[in-house]
Design a protein around this nucleic acid. Structure first.
Lengths: 119, 119
DNA sequence: TTAATACTTAAGTAAATACTTAAGTATCAT
DNA sequence: ATGATACTTAAGTATTTACTTAAGTATTAA
């Protein structure tokens, strides 16, 4: 379990913006140009290019320029890594206790704590 | 598919910081006090409290104060929502094409584009 | 060759982030 | 009552974000 990961920082940060998620959504349907990505967004082209840079640095998107057109596409690896981080932790958490077990664990924890304090 | 979600913004943003992920990691093992969460982190207590606020606003963590001690615990709902957003998109993307199909789709796209341009 | 297209670069700004230190305020233990 | 504990609040700062407008630079089309 590696929680200290600059890659995860970048991926989650990239996903934390609605404009960038809209761009990802568009790329799910297939490759797109910068203009294509900009079309549904209420902001200037340079702003979109900056969002694109965040997506590329995170590894979520790659792009290539041919002629004057830059074509962007999704890279599933980063998405998979982020999903895995969450998934591993969520399933650990959910399997560890059911609703009742959770309460029992909390009691145990409180008890141990009291003992530790006294010593 | 709802990509415009302030809740997702907050959850992904909360997950984008290594200190906050360490705090989550600690909470996977069970409830913890603010001091417990602060212990492994190289920063002041107020800084930790600020991170905790981010986690609480995102819904990833809840806390309750009893006496002078605030006890924090994980809430799996937000984690599940974030995981779902990624999972839905990744599986859509991955099922849509295999490596070869992907290339074919890219060709088709380029072709359509050329036609559009000519009309 | 000229004009339009598709970005790109640069520079500036307002707001949000991630901290800090200093000074509180309730509890709890003695 | 007094001091120690466990936060809390306030206020300040450096950096990063998320934009903007203006002015480029290649390509492509006419």
């Amino acid at each position: 379990m590696q929680t200290h990961s600059a890659a995860l920082d970048r991926t989650f940060h990239a996903l934390a913006d609605p404009a960038r998620r809209v761009m990802i959504e568009r790329l799910l349907r297939g490759p797109a140009t910068v203009s294509d990505l900009a079309a549904p967004l209420a902001m200037s082209l340079p702003a979109v290019v900056q969002h694109l840079a965040v997506l590329e640095v995170s590894g979520l998107v790659s792009s290539e320029k041919v002629g004057r057109v830059r074509t962007c596409k999704l890279e599933s690896k980063a998405l998979r890594t982020a999903e895995q981080w969450i998934s591993e932790r969520r399933s650990f958490w959910e399997s560890q206790f059911d609703r009742l077990g959770n309460m029992l664990a909390a009691e145990t924890f409180a008890l141990k704590k009291r003992k530790r304090r006294k010593s």
